[in-house]
Design a protein around this nucleic acid. Structure first.
Lengths: 124, 124
DNA sequence: AATATAATGCAACTAAGATGCAATAACAAA
DNA sequence: TTTGTTATTGCATCTTAGTTGCATTATATT
């Protein structure tokens, strides 16, 4: 169903994403809220926020689940890639558009595009 | 490091990839070899074959690890995408090239590109 | 204030993947 | 072909991400 009630925990999570200009992994969030919010609650809030269209998710290079805010309704179905830094581990949405190739006999519905490298803070 | 000894198990794994024109998930392989090869062994053989350049790996849409044979030495560092079918779960390397956008201040070293949809067998 | 039910906490579970160590099997050299 | 070295395997155990069921609590509505 999605979010029906704006609980304290829900507000906290929304607030965290408002103030973070980057994607956050579930693992990271569970740690962040340790003591104030149950692990299961974090998972469920993220799930609902995604259904609501407030957040979107992707699978990181190491198989972990990440979430980031859904900036704009118009961008919802667009296939923007996510960048993940090998040095510091941070991840963020890239606003560039990646051309999804069309492949004969295949219908492509969505994409999980992870670009891996070094972010601006971690250049050597 | 890499492979030093061609054991029966190693030969089996190589043979499986030779005869499979698709990517195989570790989970799938562990199941396939149940009874004849230990789970840990499967993980370690795949790891070594990847180091050797015989296989390459990627992270699937659900966070699982997949392997596929490294067709050609020249393609090693190329960024080909992987297709994953939502219906049957099968995955394979696509030979098309995806244009990796360059992002100012970011150095992109590699990519994990997963295209999700319906394969030729699963069109509705 | 009373009520219906969405949301949370808790405990327990599942599944992927990793690790340490003793036993075994490749393979090079004798 | 036997022997010795050591890479590889099996086994048990562990770690961690993510899920589930259920009783309790909190939110929003009347």
């Amino acid at each position: 169903m999605g979010i029906v009630r704006k609980t304290k925990s829900v507000k906290k999570v929304i607030d965290t994403f408002e103030n973070a200009n980057q994607a956050l992994s579930v693992v990271e969030l569970v740690k962040k809220y340790d003591g104030e919010m149950n692990k299961t609650t974090v998972y469920r809030i993220l799930e609902r926020l995604e259904e609501e269209g407030v957040l979107h998710s992707f699978t990181g290079k190491d198989g972990l689940k990440w979430f980031a805010k859904q900036e704009d309704a118009s961008k919802v179905q667009s296939t923007h890639p996510h960048f993940q830094c090998q040095e510091c581990g941070k991840s963020e949405c890239l606003s560039v558009d990646v051309e999804i190739p069309s492949v004969p006999n295949y219908s492509i519905q969505k994409a999980n595009l992870i670009l891996v490298g070094a972010c601006s803070d971690c250049q050597s």
